[in-house]
Computed example of a mutant assay.
Amino acid sequence: MRKEQFSIGKKQLKVPIIQGGMGVGISLGGLAGAVAKEGGAGTISAAQIGFREPDFYENPVEANKRAIHKEMDKARKISPEGVIGFNLMVAMNDYETYAREVIAAGADFIVSGAGLPVDLPAYIKDSDIAIAPIVSTRKSAHVILKFWDKKYKKTADFIVIEGPMAGGHLGFHKEQLGELTPEIYAEEVKEIITVVRKYEEKYEKKIPVILAGGIYEHADYERAFTLGADGVQIATRFVTTEECDADERYKQAYIQAKKEDIVIVNSPVGMPGRAIRNVFLDKVKTEGRIPPTKCLRCIHTCNPAETPYCITEALIHAAKGEVDQALLFCGGRAYEAKTIETVKKVIDYFCKDCL
């Protein structure tokens, strides 16, 4: 099946693939730049992006702002003309500050989830950056698009549908995850697309729909288009690439994982998440709580006095390859990873018939 090219903002993608944002420190300028160089859209995760800055623990907001520019510059050196953007978590404190910093850094788009980005249009109104909410249900798509339309007279530039097989934070209740078969969720996808098409007509513009979650084999990629999607978002498959910004030990955790190691966890963000079972998760289960070493007040939904663990600490350990102390977020099919590939090889595998 040949795929039509579509644009994100003012730039046209050569291949209909967006690389999913993965934080902390898994998808930074290196991975995003490599994906953009091959014609896809590279996504840098802004979540605690400044964790390697020397003053991160003393002044995390300023450290994160500096790192946004550093990682964007790194990506642009790899792909000067490519499509490069950021993933922003709605649950982050200082969300508006980071949105404005991403714009100042020259990003082409913002993808935003872990909550509904209801006021994102207000933060980007003086720029031409493209914005896209991440949704998982018809209800969430309807709510966010209706809100943007009524309050800001604006609609999405594209939309990402994250299904139940996605990695990291999930837009479903824990009990739903066992009930949503591919066949059942396919109907939800079609309903979401119906909602999107309504706003396409109203605003007389194309709103590309990107399907995410469990896109691991070529058949998954093809199926997305048969459901009516315009493109796919892939994350897990890019973790085990040479260009991924994660530590080699993080990548090896994917390769060594078995199907039964992929579990659903309760995140301090207040949402279920998918991760690889390891020493850290077993310790949380046994001890009930691992108190934060130092609270950075990074997530507005987190209560540091009660949180089972500090998600920032756990994800920083992951990015540094300290896997026994880490939360190892992953997609539902991470256990299928067998080897380290290149970004080009992954893109070529999916896009055998791209224009």
Rank of each mutant, 00 (worst) to 15 (best):
T241S: 13
K190F: 09
G213N: 11
K174R: 14
L177C: 05
K205G: 11
G214Q: 03
T226Y: 13
Y216L: 09
T236H: 11
V239I: 15
E188L: 02
P208R: 04
Y216R: 13
A156D: 13
I184M: 10
I184V: 15
T241Y: 13
V209P: 05
E200R: 10
G167F: 07
V195G: 00
Y221P: 06
V239C: 12
T240W: 04
E187G: 05
E183R: 08
A166Y: 02
E191T: 02
D157G: 12
R237E: 04
Y199M: 07
E175Y: 15
V232D: 02
G231D: 12
T236R: 03
Y216D: 13
E242M: 12
R223A: 12
E191Y: 00
G231A: 08
E200L: 06
T155K: 08
L211E: 02
H218M: 08
K206D: 14
E217V: 11
T236V: 07
V189F: 04
G178C: 05
E162H: 11
K202R: 14
T226N: 10
G171D: 07
Y221M: 10
T194P: 00
T155I: 05
Y203S: 07
R197L: 00
E243D: 14
K206R: 14
E188D: 13
I192Y: 04
E191K: 15
E183F: 12
A224I: 03
E242R: 15
T236C: 02
H169I: 06
G167M: 06
A235I: 07
G213F: 09
F238M: 05
V189I: 15
E162Y: 07
P164S: 11
I193N: 04
R197T: 03
C244F: 05
Y221D: 06
R197M: 01
V196C: 01
R237D: 08
I193G: 00
V189C: 09
T181D: 04
F172P: 03
G167P: 04
A212W: 03
T236L: 03
A166D: 03
A156S: 15
L170Q: 10
V189Y: 03
D220P: 08
E242Y: 12
V189D: 04
G231V: 07
Y185G: 06
T194S: 15
K202M: 11
E187Q: 15
F158E: 11
Y185Q: 06
A156I: 14
A229M: 03
I192E: 01
L177P: 08
E201F: 06
D230G: 05
T194A: 15
R197K: 15
H173I: 00
V239T: 14
E243C: 08
T194N: 14
K174C: 00
G213R: 11
A166T: 10
T181C: 02
T181V: 03
